[in-house]
Simulated scan of single mutants.
Amino acid sequence: MRVDPRPEIITETLIHNVVHAFYARVRADAALGPIFESKLNGRWDAHLATMVDFWASVTLRAGRYAGKPHVRHHGLGLAPEHFQQWLAMFEATVNELCRGEAAAALIDRAHRIADSLQISLNIGPKALHFPAFAGGGNARAAR
């Protein structure tokens, strides 16, 4: 019987491997690569370290990430199709590097993050579609 070497639990090493493999795919992607390159040119190492901290915080409760991802994604011209591509690439990466509960947890979290970001950008099927939210506006300030 062949044993599957992919881990079933999330560890710091797994997070590091997923983040680095995923962003290698992103950088090579015709649609997503230029968007990320325009913001991160010359700062990829710092971004990867931040993303490892982010994923460790959302999966292992490491508490190392204190950024504002919703703010960082405004003004990038993102559309629902970008998130679909992002999710497909993320899922492929995760499924290559882990299995079982670890894969399910990472993929579930990625979908929740994608939904949340799209809502904050007022795009996608779950967006609120209130004009005050477009571009990060404040609904209360619009009243």
Rank of each mutant, 00 (worst) to 15 (best):
M89A: 06
V26H: 02
H74D: 11
A30Y: 00
S38C: 11
A46Q: 15
I35S: 00
G77R: 09
E37S: 06
L60C: 09
R25W: 02
K39E: 14
F54K: 05
T59E: 12
L32A: 09
Y65Q: 01
R64E: 15
W86V: 05
R72W: 01
Y23F: 14
Q84K: 13
H16C: 02
H16L: 08
G33V: 06
L76P: 10
H47Y: 12
H82R: 10
A24H: 08
R25A: 02
F36T: 00
W55Y: 09
A56V: 10
A49S: 14
F83T: 07
Q84Y: 04
V71P: 02
H47W: 09
W86I: 03
E91I: 03
P34Y: 06
D53L: 07
H70P: 01
R72T: 07
V52S: 05
R61F: 12
R43A: 13
G63Y: 06
V19R: 05
N17G: 05
L60V: 09
A30W: 07
A66H: 15
H47T: 03
L78P: 08
S57G: 12
A30C: 07
G67R: 00
R43S: 14
D29V: 04
G75Y: 09
A24N: 11
F36R: 00
A24T: 14
R61K: 12
I35T: 13
V26S: 01
G77Q: 12
P80W: 02
Y65S: 00
F83R: 05
G63T: 09
R72N: 15
I15Q: 06
F90I: 01
P80E: 11
A66C: 13
I15R: 06
A79H: 15
M51E: 00
T50I: 08
S38Q: 14
N17P: 03
A28C: 00
E37C: 03
A62Q: 08
V18K: 02
M89P: 01
M51H: 08
K68C: 11
L60H: 07
E81A: 15
G77T: 07
L14E: 07
G75K: 07
L76G: 11
R25D: 11
L40R: 00
